[in-house]
Simulated scan of single mutants.
Amino acid sequence: MWSMGLRWDPAAGDPTVHALHRALRSRNWAEARRVVDATPGDERIALIDGFAYLPNAYALASGWVAAESHDRLPALVQGAAGVRWAWEARGARVAKLTRQSQFEEFHRRLALVERTLWEVVADDEDDPAPWTFLVKSARGSRADRGEAQRRFVGATRHAPFNTVAHAHMLQYRCRKWFGSHEEMFVFARSATRTAPAGSLLPVLVALAHSERWVSSGGEEVWNYMRAPEVRAELRAAAERSIWHADHRHSIGWPRAWNSFALAFSVARDWPSAARVFDGLGNRVTDDWHYVLGPARLRFRLARRKAYANRDLPVAA
């Protein structure tokens, strides 16, 4: 599919995510359970998170709940998909451009979804998956810092390298939400230091720099990502993560690779960007939302520039 050019696919071509989606579309509950149960460890969380991005995910999961109402797995999948469903009601525009009716529907949906996820937690407090999606919802429900941390601890107690939970906690700690640039970087760098070699967790460094970049104003917006120390830290994170010999393509890997491709492209480190694009093929994700324009267009333009300049030295 990828050789034919860029095609928008919310699952970035992940066959396991699509298998879960197909099973629920066909109301094959046994197959849906088989797909989830066959997915090990942290990848199970990434699978459920990836499913939430696909069309009608919440409605499909709700059908599973209606058919098997006393089972926690359908409720978990419904709750995870429901967080994104709630955000769809709010929309992606800044608060001042969002209608009051959108906020009201967003909070109505989020309250409904959180109630489902808390019921799943109550059934098994050691399962990191429901806690992960409660970390994701913490920003929308305006959970205080202590509560957000409690959810994060639940998500990582038995899954310390849970990339989905870390990515959402990073967002909570951003200045635009409830934290600061300093707090965000402390979090990202600490996770990177403790992550196993080849893990996706060092992508937090790329995400943090992208967040810092978009918050810049005036002339600084053009200079921040091109600073030698930023470029060096991005390369070090990639070497510890997606370029490491121990790295493997687990569920959700294209999101991390796209985040690195974006960061290197904005930094105008074209040789590094080209190296990431080589590994991505045509797998474009919506992680390009940091730059204006459709994700596929921004991806295509950045890749073209990277390939045209891959053999040039990076300017100081």
Score class of each variant (00 low, 15 high):
R109W: 04
L110P: 04
A111N: 01
A111H: 08
E114H: 09
E114A: 11
R115G: 15
L117Q: 04
L117H: 02
E119P: 03
E119H: 12
E119F: 06
E119V: 11
V120M: 08
V121H: 00
V121A: 10
V121T: 11
V121Y: 03
A122C: 09
D124L: 01
E125N: 10
D126W: 08
D127R: 01
A129Q: 03
A129Y: 00
W131G: 09
T132C: 07
F133K: 02
F133T: 01
L134N: 00
L134K: 00
K136Q: 15
K136C: 12
S137Q: 02
S137D: 10
A138M: 06
S141G: 13
A143S: 15
A143C: 13
D144A: 10
D144K: 03
R145N: 14
E147A: 13
A148E: 03
A148C: 07
A148D: 02
Q149F: 13
Q149G: 12
R150F: 11
R150A: 14
R150N: 11
R151A: 12
G154Y: 01
G154F: 05
A155M: 03
A155I: 00
H158I: 06
A159F: 04
A159K: 02
P160R: 08
F161V: 08
N162G: 10
V164H: 10
A165S: 06
A165R: 00
H166K: 10
H166I: 03
H166C: 10
A167E: 15
H168I: 02
H168G: 05
H168P: 05
H168T: 08
M169F: 12
Y172C: 11
R173Q: 11
R175I: 07
K176I: 11
K176F: 12
G179K: 05
G179R: 02
E182T: 14
E183R: 11
M184F: 05
M184W: 04
V186E: 14
F187Q: 06
F187G: 10
A188S: 10
A191H: 11
A191I: 09
T192S: 14
T192F: 09
T192C: 12
R193H: 08
R193Y: 04
T194N: 13
G198L: 03
S199N: 06
S199I: 04
L201H: 05
P202W: 04
P202F: 07
L204S: 07
L204M: 09
L204A: 09
V205Q: 07
L207R: 13
A208W: 00
A208Q: 06
H209Y: 03
S210P: 02
E211K: 01
E211Q: 12
W213D: 10
W213F: 04
S215E: 15
S216P: 00
G217N: 07
G217E: 13
G217Q: 02
E220Y: 11
E220L: 13
E220G: 10
W222M: 12
Y224F: 14
Y224T: 06
Y224I: 00
R226T: 15
R226G: 05
R226N: 03
P228Q: 01
E229T: 14
R231K: 15
A232C: 09
A232P: 06
E233C: 05
L234A: 01
L234S: 07
L234I: 03
R235A: 14
A236L: 06
A237N: 04
A237G: 06
A237V: 05
R240G: 15
R240H: 13
